[in-house]
Design a protein around this nucleic acid. Structure first.
Lengths: 336, 336
DNA sequence: GCAGTATATGTTAACGTTAACAACAAATAG
DNA sequence: CTATTTGTTGTTAACGTTAACATATACTGC
C-alpha cells in the first residue's frame, strides 16, 4: 500500500504539500495540486486511517446503536439506516453498527471505552426504549449523540411530532366517516408507542367518539403479535369500522389475519398504518399510512452528528429537529 | 486517557517493560509485573488501538458480512453472532458488522479498501447466496475469510452436513409412521436451501414415498411467506400428514396459519423444523426440530478466522469444519 | 572462578500522518 | 525602492505503541 512519502518522492514535493492536497487545504499551487492528484491516482493511494487517528485523536467513525428487537420487528430502521449511510458516505466518516444486547455495548464501561480509545467519535441511537441504561451514560459523559425517532430532553434528536402525526391519521379516518376506531399499539416501553397511544385517546375524546378497550390490539411493533392478537379479536366478536396501527408492520400483520378469515379490506374494515415502509405499497390492498420521512431523518441525524463531532458537543446547544409527516393515501381505507 | 508513558513514570519502569506486561510477554520479574498491573488499574489504562494498528500494521478487527434479508428473515443468525462475539471477546479482536447491500461493501473496491487500509484483518460471511459478487473478490485476493452455513470449495467453512441433517429429520418422520410428507422450502439462491430440498427428494425416493409437487410450500426462509403459502395450500385441498420445514421460522409461520384455520398440530398434521432457534421451544406446541449447533458454529468460525489472521491465510490450507446435527424431540410430531 | 547462558530491563527507531512553525518568493503599498 | 503582506513550500516534532537491538545482572556448569 502506497504511503504519502511514496507520492512525495514521485512528485518531488514534500510530504506536507502532499498532505495539503489530500486534505484539500488551500495555499497550494495549481501545478502542485495537479501533479500530486495524478500521482495519488497512479499509486491508488488512500490515507492510512490508523496514522490519522493517532495524530488527530479522532477515529472518524460514528457508532449506530440499535436493539435486536428493532432489527427483527421493523423494517423501518432499514430506511433510516440508508439515509445515514448515504449521508455519511459524503463526509469522510465511517459507520459501525452496534446491536445492543450484544456484549459490545452491554456495559457502561464498554461504551466509555469505545470513546476513550477513540474508536468512536459519536453515537447515533435509533428509538431507544424508556429504560435504556446507556442513555444515562451518554448524557453524563457528554458523548456526542443524536437520537432518531424519540425526543429526549438534553439530547440532540431527530423525530416527528407523534401527537400531530397521530391526529393526522385519526382525523383522516374520521373525515372518511368512521366513528368506531380501534388501535394496534406498539411496545409499551418505547416513547413513540406511548405517545401515539396517548394521542389516539386524546383525539377520539376530542371528537366525542367511543373509546372501546376491547379494540386495542397489542402488537409490540411486530408482525406476528399483531397477527395473533387480531385473530383473537376476531374470535371474540364485534369489530370497529377502522383500525389505526402504530406502525405499518403491525398493520400488515393484522391485514393478513383479517384476510385469512375472509374479512375484506377496506370493504368490511378500513386500516391505516404508520411509517410508510417499502412493503406498504406492495401488499394487497396497498396500505394507506401516515408517512414518516425515514430516509430524511437518517440523513438529518447523520449531518447533525458530524456537526457535533467537529464542533465539539459541549459547545453546541442541543436541539431536536422535528420532521413533518403526511398522509399517503392508498386503498386500505373506505369512505363510509 | 492515560498512556503507556504515564504508567512508566508512575512505576519507574521503562515504557518497554510496561508494554511487555500489557502484552503478557515473558522475561518480566514478578515484582515489575505486579507494580505495573496495579498502576494500569489505577489509571484505568487501555492501550490506544490507533497506535497499535499503526505499528503492527493490523487492525485486530474482523468484519462480519451478512445480508439484510438474513437479518430480517431469520433469527438464526442471532445465535451464530452471539457465538462469534463471545469467542472474539476472549481473543482481543473486535467485530464490525457489514450488512451487504449497504454501500459499505457494495463494491469490490470498498472491500479491498477495508483490507488495504488495514481496517479489517479478515472476514466472516454468513450463508452467502450463490451469486454473491464479493465471494470472488475475497478468493482471488486471498483475504482471510471464513464462511458460516455454506460450503464453498477453496474457502474455510463451518457448516453442517445438510444432506445428513435432512435425512435425520425425514427419517424421524418416517419412523413415526408418516408416509405423506410435504416440505416448506427456503430461498432458491441459497446453498442450504438447495441442499435441503435435494436431500428431501432423495430421502423420499430412497424410502419409496410419493413426492407430491403440491406439497412443496415456498417459504423463502421467512415467516410471512410460509404463512401466506400455507394458507394457500389449505384453500386448495388435501394435506400431507407431516411437513418438513427448511427452517424453524417458516415452520412457525406455517403453524400459525394452520392454527388460524383450526388445523390441530400435531393432531391433524405433524411438523418438524430446522435450526432450533430460541422461539422453537416457546411456541405452542413446542417445535420438534433438527438442531444445528448455531452458537458453536459461531464460536468455531471465530476461532478459525483468528487463526487465519495470525498465521496468515496463505500458509494455512483451507478446511471445512462440519458440525453434527441432532433431533430435538418436542411436541409437534405425532406417532401415527 | 571464568566462560557461557538465561533473565530482566532499557534505548532507539519506526509505523504514516498532521500541526505548528519557519523560510522564501512574489505581489502590493507607500 | 524599501516595507509589508500574501501565497507557497518545507522542516521538525508529535501522536502511542512495538520490534530489534543493546546492556546489565544473575545463574549455570565444569
Amino acid at each position: 500500500m502506497a504511503t504519502i512519502s511514496d507520492i512525495s518522492k514521485k512528485t518531488g514535493y514534500s510530504i506536507m504539500t502532499v498532505s495539503r492536497v489530500i486534505n484539500n487545504s488551500k495555499n497550494v499551487s495549481e501545478k502542485a495540486r495537479k501533479a500530486i492528484a495524478t500521482a495519488v491516482k497512479d499509486f491508488n493511494y488512500t490515507p492510512n486511517s490508523a496514522a490519522r487517528r493517532l495524530v488527530k485523536q479522532k477515529s472518524q467513525t460514528i457508532g449506530l446503536i440499535i436493539t435486536y428487537e428493532q432489527i427483527f420487528s421493523s423494517y423501518y430502521f432499514l430506511t433510516i439506516m440508508k439515509g445515514i449511510e448515504e449521508k455519511l458516505e459524503k463526509t469522510d466518516y465511517n459507520l459501525i453498527m452496534y446491536a445492543s444486547n450484544s456484549p459490545n455495548v452491554s456495559s457502561e464501561a464498554k461504551l466509555l471505552n469505545l470513546i476513550n480509545q477513540k474508536l468512536i467519535d459519536g453515537f447515533l441511537v435509533i428509538a431507544p426504549s424508556k429504560d435504556e441504561f446507556f442513555m444515562n451514560t451518554l448524557h453524563t459523559n457528554k458523548i456526542p449523540t443524536v437520537i432518531i425517532g424519540a425526543s429526549y430532553p438534553f439530547f440532540n434528536c431527530v423525530d416527528v411530532d407523534n401527537n400531530k402525526a397521530t391526529f393526522l391519521g385519526i382525523e383522516y379516518l374520521i373525515k372518511k366517516g368512521h366513528k368506531s376506531i380501534g388501535m394496534i399499539r406498539g411496545t409499551k416501553n418505547r416513547y413513540d408507542a406511548i405517545e401515539r397511544e396517548k394521542a389516539f385517546i386524546e383525539c377520539l375524546e376530542k371528537h366525542g367518539l367511543e373509546i372501546n378497550k376491547r379494540w386495542f390490539i397489542d402488537g409490540q411493533f411486530e408482525y406476528r403479535q399483531a397477527h395473533l392478537n387480531t385473530l383473537k379479536l376476531l374470535d371474540e366478536g364485534t369489530l370497529p369500522t377502522a383500525l389505526f396501527a402504530a406502525n405499518d408492520l403491525m398493520a400488515i400483520g393484522s391485514m393478513d389475519a383479517l384476510h385469512s378469515r375472509n374479512v375484506k379490506i377496506p370493504g368490511d374494515i378500513s386500516i391505516i398504518g404508520f411509517d410508510d415502509i417499502d412493503l406498504a405499497k406492495l401488499i394487497q390492498p396497498p396500505l394507506t399510512t401516515v408517512r414518516q420521512p425515514l430516509y430524511n431523518m437518517g440523513e438529518a441525524a447523520a449531518s447533525r452528528i458530524v456537526e457535533l463531532v467537529e464542533k465539539g458537543a459541549k459547545k453546541t446547544a442541543s436541539q431536536t429537529i422535528r420532521m413533518d409527516t403526511e398522509i399517503v393515501e392508498r386503498e386500505s381505507v373506505k369512505k363510509l
